[in-house]
Computed example of a mutant assay.
Amino acid sequence: MKNSILATEQPSKYDNLERMGTRELLVGINQEDQAVPLIVEKAIPIIQRFVDSTVSRMEKGGRLFYIGAGTSGRLGVLDASECPPTYGVSDDWVIGLIAGGDIALRKAVENAEDDAEQAWKDLKQYNINAMDTLLGIAASGTTPYVIGGLKNARKNGIVTGCIVCNDDSPLAEQADFPIELVVGPEFVTGSTRMKAGTAQKLVLNMISTTVMIKLGRVKGNKMVDMQLSNTKLTKRGVKMLVEELMIDEQRAKRLLAKHKSVRKIIELYRKE
């Protein structure tokens, strides 16, 4: 790595935080956050290449895996878990794994991220193979769990990418598509759940949304394959049908109750 001190571990530009007033704290955090989207923008070319590679493999039956520890792992699991209800896909299209297992989503699991072989063991439970794509997420770029996962994946012919917030990290060395988002020191020194986490979340949003659009899970600008799992989503489905087919709300409700799918109704209606 270029610097002996990681960018994510450098001292905050702010000090004596405990003496600041509430507004001063909020303004300082907000000012730091404003730089994040601009840093993400610079990474769009490598994100594009990663997405295109992922889509080409998923079109042939491959899957997208995320691995991470702590905040990074939680963000990956969150992004993966939102794909089925949003796009109506199977829960094995995008799979998020966190060091320490699902219990680590709520409570820190001691030393879980330090095992360089565990990620590969976790991935093998899903029969990961050369058709799949693996994205490692680690703000520091030094997490053994994530590095080990990517290293083993590459040995087995699996395409790899990563999201890191330091330059020239050990994790990036193991990635075919290293997405480096150097957001600099955090408002609270070393608290990478802040700017680093925000940057990772933005990129994950970009990746999964673009992948799903490219795989045909959006029509126009609407989530026509979403799971109608609650009242809010059912109302959204009715609204989509009213706007798309120019029918009244009552008819839209009847059609949705019968067919349970916005896409199916639109396709059937167009055939009439």
Results as ranks from 00 to 15, higher is better:
Asp102Ile: 10
Arg193Asp: 11
Val109Ile: 12
Ile47Phe: 09
Glu186Ile: 09
Met20Ile: 01
Gly101His: 10
Thr210Gln: 01
Asp52Lys: 11
Gly190Gln: 09
Ile95Gly: 07
Leu135Asp: 06
Gly28Ile: 05
Pro45Trp: 03
Ala43Gln: 07
Leu215Ile: 09
Gly28Leu: 03
Leu134Tyr: 08
Thr8Cys: 09
Asn127Thr: 02
Ile179Tyr: 09
Lys258Pro: 01
Asp176Arg: 00
Thr210Phe: 01
Thr160Arg: 01
Ile213Met: 13
Met58Ile: 12
Val146Met: 09
Glu110Asn: 10
Gly216Met: 08
Gly70Pro: 11
Ile5Gln: 12
Lys271Arg: 12
Arg74Lys: 14
Met246Gly: 04
Gly28Pro: 03
Val211Pro: 01
Asn221Val: 04
Phe177Leu: 07
Glu32Thr: 04
Asp91Gly: 02
Val55Gly: 11
Gly73Thr: 08
Tyr66Met: 07
Lys107Thr: 10
Leu181Thr: 04
Arg74Met: 13
Ala138Glu: 09
Gly149Lys: 05
Gln250Val: 11
Lys13Asp: 14
Val262Tyr: 06
Val146Lys: 03
Leu228Thr: 11
Ile5Gly: 00
Gln200Tyr: 07
Val164Met: 07
Lys124Ala: 13
Leu75Asp: 02
Leu26Gln: 09
Arg57Leu: 12
Gly21Tyr: 06
Gln118Lys: 13
Gln250Leu: 11
Arg19Tyr: 07
Thr231Gln: 13
Lys13Tyr: 12
Cys162Tyr: 02
Gln200Trp: 08
Ile44Tyr: 15
Asp248Leu: 05
Gly237Phe: 06
Asp33Val: 05
Lys151Thr: 14
